[in-house]
Computed example of a mutant assay.
Amino acid sequence: MFGLYIHVPFCASRCGYCDFNTYTPSETASTFDAYLTALDTELRLADTEPADTVFIGGGTPSLLGAGGLARIMDMVRDHVGVRPGAEVTTESNPESTDPRFFAELLQAGFTRVSLGMQSASAPVLRVLDRRHTPGRAVAAAREARAAGFEHVNLDMMYGTPTETDDDVRSTLDAILSADVDHVSAYSLIVEDGTALARRIRRGELPPPREDVYAERYEMIAAALEGAGFGWYEVSNWAKPGGECRHNLIYWRGGHWWGAGPGAHSYIGRRRFFNVKRPERYTQLLAAGELPVGGGEQISDEEHHFEQVMLGLRLREGIPTGWVGEGAQGVVEKHARAGLLTVGERIAVTGAGRLLADGIVTDILAAE
Rank of each mutant, 00 (worst) to 15 (best):
C15S: 04
C15Q: 04
G16L: 10
G16M: 00
G16S: 15
G16A: 15
Y17P: 09
Y17F: 15
Y17K: 06
C18F: 02
C18S: 06
D19Q: 05
D19P: 02
D19R: 08
D19E: 07
D19V: 03
F20H: 00
F20L: 07
F20W: 07
N21Y: 09
N21V: 14
N21R: 11
N21A: 13
T22D: 00
T22E: 01
T22W: 00
T22N: 00
Y23L: 03
Y23Q: 03
Y23K: 00
Y23E: 03
T24S: 13
T24L: 10
T24R: 09
P25A: 03
P25G: 07
S26A: 15
S26I: 07
E27D: 05
E27N: 01
E27Q: 15
T28R: 06
T28C: 07
T28A: 09
T28F: 05
T28H: 04
A29H: 12
A29G: 15
A29W: 01
A29C: 10
S30H: 01
S30Y: 00
S30A: 14
S30Q: 12
S30W: 01
T31R: 09
T31L: 11
F32I: 00
F32R: 12
F32W: 12
D33Y: 01
D33T: 14
D33R: 15
A34Q: 14
Y35H: 10
L36F: 08
L36N: 10
L36K: 07
L36R: 05
L36A: 11
L36M: 12
L36Q: 06
T37I: 11
T37Y: 00
A38I: 10
A38Q: 03
A38W: 01
L39W: 06
L39V: 07
L39Q: 03
D40H: 12
D40R: 15
D40V: 00
D40N: 15
T41G: 11
T41I: 14
T41Y: 01
T41Q: 13
T41L: 11
E42K: 04
E42L: 04
E42V: 02
E42A: 05
E42F: 02
L43A: 06
R44P: 05
R44M: 14
R44S: 15
R44V: 10
R44Y: 09
R44C: 13
R44N: 12
R44W: 10
